[in-house]
Design a protein around this nucleic acid. Structure first.
Lengths: 201, 201
DNA sequence: CTCGGCTATGTCATTCTTGACATAGTTTGG
DNA sequence: CCAAACTATGTCAAGAATGACATAGCCGAG
């Protein structure tokens, strides 16, 4: 309702975070770096203008307090209209897709370079995914220990758990694919096989 | 070399396609819809200006011929400088990330809505991934039948095969996760469980 | 005591991306 | 025979995203 016009996907991401608890733009930037960052990345320079747009549409409201820098600290909360808008968006038809994957793009062009270059690329990606996986597994273990897996679908922590599981599956799938690609490269170049063995003892 | 300045990721995607064979902007738009679309999506309205930029940087070259519409048909080919630029980019450090996943964002906020709404969302996603998987599996079977899996890393068709495998793994992982989420929703709502059984006989 | 990092908020220019508009011949199916 | 879809190329305005710049107090490590 009201002049809720068109809200961008980022707007919904911010609203989804604020639906859990009120927080500052800075805290949203942290969230969008890590837990939300798995499925929605952005920079703080985009968050502040988007919060202003959401506030203009009355989907969030802000309160001021003393801040650490030159400006006052501003805490945002989702309004009832904001929550209603978010609920409507969840129920509306989604567009799946919108992928952007630099690694796959590089692998697509990898026939142009020596296998050792591709190997380096894939090993570097593997390390990245390995470190992500470790982080997610730690979080998952702690969530399970706290009984979050039994909370049911109306608890935000349960929703965290659902997305975290996808993160874990994703990273594992990627690591398995990286290993498979490394093996494929080794078929034509025995030097690559030993590199793979050294990388994964 | 030359004034190759900064090429955008889309520029590299186009260059990667043109490195295989010369083609028109329209053909590139088709590619970016389907095989490349899995890891890099865009619209034709972005392809034409980007091709102009690549040509200005001498990374691609175009030739004109008779076209079906009001304008002549323009076929682009990667230049040696373009191939060099592409090779350098593959070897350069990558930034992993840049995810944008509307489904996960909605699931993150799904505690706000009734489980039946979440169920609909996830089932719709499942159908989408199921249809993608089917398409990829058909392509994979045909690639294997033609012995492409044995070609080695310096053949573009082998690079296709590497990325296609990731597509298959990705869709399977997603489907498995969708099924798991549907089961999780069923724990609290027996009506959901029967919906799941009907959806996957 | 100083340096770096964290909290915290914003702006700005540039680039990227989207969706709509525009045009026109050929091919395919009902 | 007619309509729809396909080939083919482009523009344009609006909105989204990136990276750099700017500011400043507080806190911990060395």
């Amino acid at each position: 309702m009201t002049a809720a016009d068109r809200v961008s996907a980022l707007g919904y991401a911010l609203l989804a975070a604020l639906a859990r608890e009120p927080m500052t733009g800075y805290a949203l930037a942290q969230l969008v770096r890590d837990p939300i960052g798995f499925f929605w990345e952005t920079r703080h320079s985009q968050i502040y203008p988007e919060l202003a747009r959401l506030e203009a549409a009355a989907l969030v409201a802000s309160t001021f307090g003393p801040g650490p820098g030159p400006r006052p600290k501003r805490t945002y909360a989702a309004t009832d209209a904001g929550l209603a808008e978010l609920r409507a968006w969840i129920a509306a038809p989604s567009r799946f897709g919108g992928r952007r994957d630099e690694l796959l793009l590089k692998v697509y062009a990898s026939w142009l370079v020596e296998p050792s270059v591709t190997l380096g690329l894939v090993q570097s990606a593997r390390r990245h995914h390995e470190s992500n996986l470790e982080r997610y597994l730690t979080r998952d273990a702690s969530a399970r220990a706290r009984g979050i897996a039994e909370l049911g679908p109306r608890d935000p922590r349960f929703a965290d758990y659902l997305t975290l599981r996808r993160g874990i599956d994703f990273e594992r799938g990627r690591i398995a694919w990286c290993d498979w690609v490394i093996d494929q490269l080794a078929v034509d170049d025995p030097g690559v096989a030993s590199a793979r063995r050294r990388a994964t003892p």
